[in-house]
Design a binder for these strands. Sequence first.
DNA 1: GCAATGCTACGGCGCCGGCCGAAGCATCAT
DNA 2: ATGATGCTTCGGCCGGCGCCGTAGCATTGC
Lengths: 225, 225
Amino acid sequence: MQRISAFAETAALMGDPARANMLFALMDGRALTAGELARFAGVTPQTASGHLARLAEAGMIAPAAQGRHRYFRLASSGVAQMVESVMSVAEELSRRPLPVTGPRDAGLRRARTCYDHLAGELAVAIAGRMAERGQLVLGHDGAALTGAGVALLGELGVAEAALDAPCRACLDWSERRPHLAGAPATALYRHFVARSWVRPRQGTRALEVTRAGEAALARWFGIAL
Amino acid sequence: MQRISAFAETAALMGDPARANMLFALMDGRALTAGELARFAGVTPQTASGHLARLAEAGMIAPAAQGRHRYFRLASSGVAQMVESVMSVAEELSRRPLPVTGPRDAGLRRARTCYDHLAGELAVAIAGRMAERGQLVLGHDGAALTGAGVALLGELGVAEAALDAPCRACLDWSERRPHLAGAPATALYRHFVARSWVRPRQGTRALEVTRAGEAALARWFGIAL
DNA sequence: GCAATGCTACGGCGCCGGCCGAAGCATCAT
DNA sequence: ATGATGCTTCGGCCGGCGCCGTAGCATTGC
């Protein structure tokens, strides 16, 4: 709470166009006078004075009195880095986003099918571990098997043909993290069933993980549910 | 201009307490529903809806419709890093700033004395180069010679006794970057005069850099003015 | 001394934007 | 179908803040 409000205040200080201009003018490490900053920001000196007082009060810039001038500089390299990082995101956001989908239920959290692939804790754990191990590049919006990933699944016995097809990342409603979807995920699910690592239950999408399944998960993925 | 306004808008989006709370709630990478985010931010669903629409419109968060729920997640790790960096500065600014001083004139930019030490382009270049080479730790508010710095000045012939004394950083009004002050800087200036590397001019604080001085600057500091 | 310059303090204006209540539209449940 | 739930849109209120004009203080220069 306390820190979130400090965060919001810091961000809000950068969020005013006049102040943003001032911060940019100071980004090269030089110290500028209040008047110069006012001109740079396109406001009158008295308006600038108020902005500068607020920035200084917050500790984001540091004043240095010098005769009848007052010089201001960024208070630290940390501030410059912050401005830099906000700028980089702002730049990136000059492009666009995208959507995802999924189901809804309860009691199926552990393991279930999601159309034609695995979902639930099990699937999220598999995707997460594969990503950790560099076998999978996992985004919220997309996924791709790496060479190591293809090798693992091939060794495991999944049909090679399916592994060339593209993956998708599917948002898991119970875990709220992505799990693997697409042709490779379908092949993987079928393989799990063929080996009796998971067993579908009658009249529900829930899956029972067998003892053999637990052993296989530990062996191939290093997962203990 | 264009990018500065994008910067300000991005920062302003983070600058509202309700939105800041939402962003924090999403920082662990999970996707949360609009209602959950509303509760987290302490606002009504309709208010939250507006905030979420703005964040999504800007591309800072990504929506995922799912039945009668809408899940939101941070749009990218870049956004998370930005939040992180703003947070770190906000944390740091829960502490305080400080002032500096200096003179004013014209035509003395290249080299001059500042009370009892060097100032102007010359002094700023020396301080900058020494900092680059790890001989000096230079802040806007303070400075300290490292072991390498003490070694350099000692080798150069500056009285060892002075090198143990503390340094100051002095804001250079013409360069608007800090140069070195304090006892070591005074000793260095005297050394420059003794070796005729700089020659004071009558009735002014300006210094003339001699040919020997230029050679010495190149040799000891790697500086070509 | 006086005037000029640079900056700040104060007061008032206007607008942007955050807030909620009411209402509307989807999806899900029975 | 009917009601419940989740979310959004609309409209109106209100407070905060960014803006400037005026005035005042400090420093500099004549």
